[in-house]
């Protein structure tokens, strides 16, 4: 997953070999790459839990603290209990919704449809409006300088 370059000036050594440059990504690979980019926008973290090995939940204050109040007699159930009790993935929930709300309006039908306006294109390197398309991978670029950076960095290096 480490396809991100730290600094552009560190990349000179990484110039794509001539043989690679003649390769062209097929349509399926381009779509896969585009889908991955959109999926990445949904991620909560891009690094691992720094303390995954530690059991921290013991330190968590329990609602049971307020058991001190005389009005609350009942013993609180643990967070773990509710995790197991209500465990469902997002995909399962969407699938179940087909039975719960079979007809629109529902979660899926509410999604905004594609725009009627044409897509706009921006340089994959600098973000300014672009007029050119990279032949090997289909990325957009705006000038020779940005094309050079693109070829040196991301063009065919992404593992799509």
């Amino acid at each position: 997953m480490k396809q991100f370059l730290l600094h552009l000036d560190e990349t000179e050594s990484g110039r794509v070999k001539d043989a690679d440059r003649r390769k062209v990504l097929d349509d399926a690979a381009r779509k896969r790459r585009a889908r991955k980019a959109v999926e990445a926008l949904e991620q909560d973290n891009f690094h691992e839990d720094p303390h995954a090995d530690l059991v921290m939940s013991k330190k968590v204050p329990k609602f049971a603290d307020s058991n001190e109040k005389p009005t609350r007699k009942k013993k609180s159930k643990s967070a773990e209990y509710y995790k197991l009790r209500f465990r469902k993935t997002f995909a399962q929930l969407v699938e179940e919704d087909v039975n719960f709300r079979p007809d629109p309006p529902n979660y899926l039908s509410a999604q905004a449809p594609p725009s009627k306006f044409p897509d706009r294109h921006f340089c994959a390197v600098c973000g300014f409006p672009s007029n050119y398309t990279c032949i090997p991978c289909g990325a957009r670029y705006c000038c020779v300088r940005c094309l050079g950076t693109h070829l040196d960095t991301r063009c065919l290096k992404w593992t799509a």
Binding site: V60, D65, S76, A79, K83, F90, L93
Partner: peptide
């Protein structure tokens, strides 16, 4: 470098242990 653990995914409550922990905190002193 904060690491996030969120109760919600795509706008829906799916991680109940996390939510319960945060609620217990909210409802506590």
């Amino acid at each position: 470098g904060l690491f996030y653990i969120l109760p919600f995914q795509k706008g829906f409550l799916v991680n109940w242990d996390t939510q319960k922990t945060v609620w217990d905190y909210m409802f506590s002193k």
